[in-house]
Design a protein around this nucleic acid. Structure first.
Lengths: 159, 159
DNA sequence: TATTGTTATACTCTATAACTATA
DNA sequence: TATAGTTATAGAGTATAACAATA
């Protein structure tokens, strides 16, 4: 790349491309930021051998002991068939337990094991650290403004 | 579901699950909002038979006439092999043109056709409408706060 | 030897249909 | 008959290796 060439040569687009249209779209910026956060989050969760989706499932089971797989799938907005492998993975690792309900032997009651409780607490701590790192410099007031904006988007999307 | 049962029965998790831990994470809310926006955006682009990724490519080619496929792939953060099908689709529809560079016959110079220019303008207008709808009620000051927060995340992720 | 665009391929995520066992 | 969980499968989206043409 001949960066010394000073003239506006007929050679097209030698310089960095322009994002003028895309940069005006908040949705574009939001998606970029989300991608960045998720890739940082994936790194944060790697030591725990958790992916974002298994982390979410583990947290929801801990916060809602006895949850069924259907309820968990609905809460995570994941199709039931896809949740099976997630729950399988957590169970195989001994992080959660699947117990049949005596009152309805079709459904499982999901709970975290002692190991799952421990790993969940550690992982949540690490994720809070990752967020603190990425949001370092954001005031509490600004943080609330961002949260309010995100809530507004949800309300506007519903109608 | 016997919602009339008033006692705290041993039946687990009959009520709506708790999101207390996840809701404290800004990344979780950000991802949810982004998902919502993207699904609304997909609907907005459907009449133009554009997906988010083909829309992005079309806009970048219009804003940067003569861009090469490698440059476009880098700008979009997409692997070169995956960009081929995107560019194929736009070319087949007559929205862009691929012209060999006389100075380097390996590379294509990408430009929008007249039809591509027209569709791009319409689609950008529709996307701006979609954003205005979703962000209705957000003040200019709040919007700038959100943009500043997203820029902060990018800076913090770099270091 | 390096680069542009391409093909083939694999891996992850997600979505749907159909099965089983229970109710 | 309806529901919980499961299996199989298909479709996106994304990533890597290797090739032909050109530099």
């Amino acid at each position: 790349m001949n960066r010394a060439t000073p003239l506006s040569a007929p050679e097209p687009a030698a310089q960095a491309p322009s994002f003028t249209t895309l940069r005006r779209l908040l949705g574009y910026r939001l998606r970029r930021a989300t991608t960045l956060i998720q890739s940082d989050l994936a790194e944060t969760l790697k030591p725990f051998e958790l992916r974002m989706i298994t982390f979410t499932a583990l947290v929801l089971i801990r916060d809602n002991p006895g949850l069924s797989q259907s309820q968990l799938a609905a809460a995570m907005d994941v199709e039931r068939p896809n949740l099976v492998v997630i729950v399988d993975e957590l169970e195989t690792r001994g992080l959660i337990a699947r117990d049949r309900l005596p009152t309805d032997r079709r459904t499982y009651a999901l709970t975290v094991t002692e190991a799952g409780e421990g790993l969940c607490a550690e992982a949540v701590g690490a994720v809070e650290g990752h967020e603190a790192r990425l949001l370092d410099g954001l005031s509490e007031a600004d943080r609330r403004t961002v949260e309010a904006a995100l809530a507004l988007i949800h309300r506007n999307a519903k109608g």
